[in-house]
Design a protein around this nucleic acid. Structure first.
Ligand SMILES: [Mn+2]
Ligand SMILES: [Mn+2]
Ligand SMILES: [Mn+2]
Ligand SMILES: [Mn+2]
Lengths: 217, 217
DNA sequence: ATATATTTTAAGCTTTGCCTAAAATTATAA
DNA sequence: TTATAATTTTAGGCAAAGCTTAAAATATAT
């Protein structure tokens, strides 16, 4: 597997996970920021390698092998992110790009030992679950903050967006994984909210509210 | 810098360090396991980038920039080796291939923090010095075990060869960095020796003796 | 049924890193 | 010093990866 192939696999895995069923050429093209014709090329190459099933005009679906490979790359990515934050004291908004490189390092033993060294973590610094050694990614029961109603409370368990800009916004507002958030008010016209975080209360837009995952108890 | 370019730089740096002066096309080809014509190609590309000076038929010499880049790759390689051995409990004969990949990860901050995390190590697990942040590689005053005479003693400070086979041989003989070695006898015909290590004494060939670095006090 | 959207094919481009064979240059040795 | 040998460079080319545009094929929606 080349670096590009691994990145396609990851993208397809995520799309399949998000939407279920076959993944369309256009969806992959958008995600990978390439042209659909490039996707067709690549997808045919990946089908040759039996990591996905491709039917002309019908989209693709990962095989078990493909799912395993993709989940493994994601596992590596997230383990490295844990390493960077927990051991090297990086901040959660700085680790993605580096993990994007580290995820392609080839050594099974390395990942076994890294995982042990990190104490078998279940989640990465952004609250995303780490696939296990067999490529199983557990679905967590979490909802978007935007789905909460007035007076409901949730604990922040992850971010949907993990761009530095968004993460830095969260820092400014003192929101991180584990923070309790109470919805004081909700504007149904635009989905904006007033929330309480610790001793502060403030306004957030719908865009923010739908980028934060929370768990209600 | 691509991966291949970085590997050429490393090879040239080592050759220059070992032999001094210009490095010949053939020497590079042999080290990189390619044809001389491929080396000429690459060397011309590297000259374009001002990391070395190339004069047709006269060999090459790294510029300051080139030396700095090469030393930095070597620094990364050796720091990662320390990480693998000290933190992930790899054995010293297992780390080279993985470090060969990790050395190409691009992130200055990563290396700054990795270095701190490891406590600013000066040597890698094979006793090789780690270039500092400015690309300075200190020459250590060490000699080959084969240079010692009868009754001389040295402390093992490094290995010239670091193939798994050789390192495993050393393990079997209970020799590692820091081990005291006493030369009990030396055969001038073939350079073989009888040495004492701890409570054992045994025969070693010249090939072994010239693959071990020692420091005499 | 027709228009629109999606997807695939065909053809080709660029980069990277190699190679062989032939020519050029330098080194060596008679 | 000149012939021979060794080294190095050029010329030309190949293959793999990943892309792209333009045109053709297929699917979908009105
Ligand atoms: Mn990430
Ligand atoms: Mn990636
Ligand atoms: Mn090494
Ligand atoms: Mn390398």
């Amino acid at each position: 597997m080349t670096l590009a192939e691994e990145n396609y696999l990851k993208a397809i895995f995520h799309l399949e996970f998000e939407n279920g069923g076959e993944v369309s050429t256009n969806a992959i093209a958008e995600r990978m920021d390439t042209k659909p014709s490039s996707v067709t090329d690549m997808v045919q190459k990946l089908a040759e390698k039996d990591v996905l099933v491709y039917k002309r005009y019908k989209g693709v679906q990962l095989t078990d092998e493909g799912k395993k490979l993709a989940a493994y790359v994601i596992r590596k990515h997230r383990l490295w992110e844990v390493f960077l934050v927990d051991k090297l004291n990086f901040h959660w908004d700085e680790v993605h790009e580096i993990a994007e490189q580290l995820e392609h390092i080839q050594s099974e033993e390395l990942i076994i030992r890294l995982n042990e060294f990190l104490g078998n973590p279940d989640f990465d610094p952004h609250g995303d679950p780490i696939p296990d050694e067999h490529g199983v990614l557990k679905r967590t029961e979490k909802k978007l903050l935007s789905e909460l109603d007035k007076n409901q409370q949730g604990v922040c368990v992850g971010v949907k967006e993990s761009s530095p800009e968004f993460l830095q916004y969260l820092d400014k507002k003192e929101i991180s994984i584990g923070t309790k958030i109470l919805v004081l008010g909700k504007e149904f016209f635009d989905g904006s909210m007033i929330i309480r975080v610790g001793n502060n209360q403030f306004f957030i837009s719908h865009k923010i509210a739908e980028s934060l995952f929370v768990q209600t108890t």
